[in-house]
């Protein structure tokens, strides 16, 4: 599962979704792998406004990446800074969680990730 996807996901429990603690899910005992993906500046520019930047910052640190700037780059910043573009491409699109769990900081429920596929099905008592 990509770091980008992690930025789109919260706890599936309905009562948690309205709380701020449920996002981002906290990676626990995660193994990371990295794919090589062709750079796609159009995609990166389009998706940045949809990324929750503070959450991305905290996930980056939790996964052992250098901390991000406090504010997201503007499209112009990105265009002028090829290194920033490459770093974000690596973090958001190339880095994958292959094994581990994602934990909701509100209810404590753990979602398992196996072979890169996260499972968000809830047990009956949480539906």
């Amino acid at each position: 599962m990509k770091v980008l996807t992690l930025n789109f996901l919260t706890c599936a429990v309905k009562a948690c979704k309205t709380t701020s603690a449920s996002f981002p899910l906290v990676p626990k005992e995660c193994e990371l792998v990295s794919d090589t993906i062709a750079p796609n500046p159009t995609l990166l520019t389009n998706l940045l406004p949809r990324v929750d930047w503070p959450a991305l910052g905290s996930i980056a640190v939790a996964l052992g990446f250098p901390s991000l700037s406090p504010l997201p780059p503007t499209p112009a910043d990105l265009e002028n800074d090829t290194k920033m573009m490459a770093d974000l491409h690596t973090l958001l699109l190339e880095t994958q969680i292959s094994e581990g769990s994602l934990v909701c900081a509100n209810c404590g429920h753990e979602y398992k990730v196996k072979e890169g596929i996260a499972n968000f099905l809830l047990p009956n008592h949480l539906v």
Binding site: L9, A12, Y111, A118, F120
Partner: peptide
């Protein structure tokens, strides 16, 4: 992009224009 196991009536996707 990605694939994950989820039920749309209990979706883990956050409420945003994604």
């Amino acid at each position: 992009g990605d694939s994950f196991v989820a039920d749309l009536t209990n979706t883990p996707l956050r409420k945003a224009r994604l």
